[in-house]
């Protein structure tokens, strides 16, 4: 599903003509198979979020290749990556990233709108997914009217609505209490098992890391430990 080959990345910091280079990832190579839940752990600043952002196409790698679904996405233009993200990827963010002026229904409907679905089809799909995440009665609620767990469920529903084969999650339980975290992790496992969705999860939480089929540890931009398989 995902193949990362000798990926390196550095950021250029500072004012013009006084730039300094900060190396974040060095020679990373990983493989994520279809239907797996892979977790990436590491301390803050280890480079795990940068790795996810590179795979997501939010930033361009300095060196190396990223392949997703047999497509070399590291060469994609911004527009190509946007289309690819819409059709092949779902995202779950730590801070949910819901649009505050849109209701739960509208937030979940957004990828369908971007994909050009008809209004009737959008309504049907969105209501079904709201039902699946147990928020049907909260369809017309704005994010500010929902709890953290509910917001994250909306976020997951939005990530799932176009049935992508891959979901990238960046600290998905970072803003949740432990009870909600357990519920959410259970839900992720169900999705993985029922729908065969591949998950790549960034976390520094051992409990989250534990749901993965494999865990990759990154430290100072390098894979420091071999892959732990369960």
């Amino acid at each position: 599903m995902i193949t990362v080959k000798q990926l390196s990345h550095h950021f250029v910091l500072g004012k013009k003509k006084q730039e300094t280079t900060l190396s974040v990832l060095q020679d990373i190579s990983i493989q994520v198979n279809k239907g797996e839940i892979v977790t990436i752990v590491g301390k803050s600043g280890s480079g795990k979020s940068t790795l996810l952002n590179l795979i997501s196409g939010f930033i361009r790698p300095t060196e190396g290749e990223i392949w997703i679904n047999d497509q070399k996405v590291s060469n994609f233009s911004e527009a190509e990556f946007a289309d690819f993200r819409l059709k092949h990827m779902g995202f779950i963010f730590q801070s949910f990233q819901l649009i505050p002026s849109m209701t739960a229904f509208q937030n979940i409907e957004l990828p369908l709108i971007l994909n050009g679905e008809s209004e009737s089809s959008r309504k049907e799909i969105t209501l079904a997914i709201l039902d699946k995440v147990g928020l049907k009665e909260f369809a017309d609620h704005y994010p500010s009217e929902l709890s953290g767990g509910q917001q994250q469920r909306v976020s997951i529903a939005r990530a799932l609505v176009l049935k992508p084969p891959l979901i990238l999650a960046d600290e998905p339980t970072g803003s949740l209490d432990s009870e909600t975290e357990t519920e959410l992790l259970q839900f992720i496992k169900e999705l993985n098992q029922e729908m065969g969705i591949t998950f790549l999860i960034i976390t520094h939480d051992d409990e989250v890391a534990a749901i993965g089929d494999r865990t990759i540890t990154i430290s100072d931009g390098c894979i420091v430990e071999g892959v732990k398989s369960r």
């Binding site: 997501s56 946007a82 289309d83 993200r85 819409l86 649009i99 971007l114």
Partner: peptide, 15 residues
């Protein structure tokens, strides 16, 4: 922020 979210979930720059 809304534009960022839209782009993150796959909104085409042209859109």
């Amino acid at each position: 922020p809304d534009i960022g979210i839209m782009k993150a979930i796959g909104a085409h720059p042209k859109t």
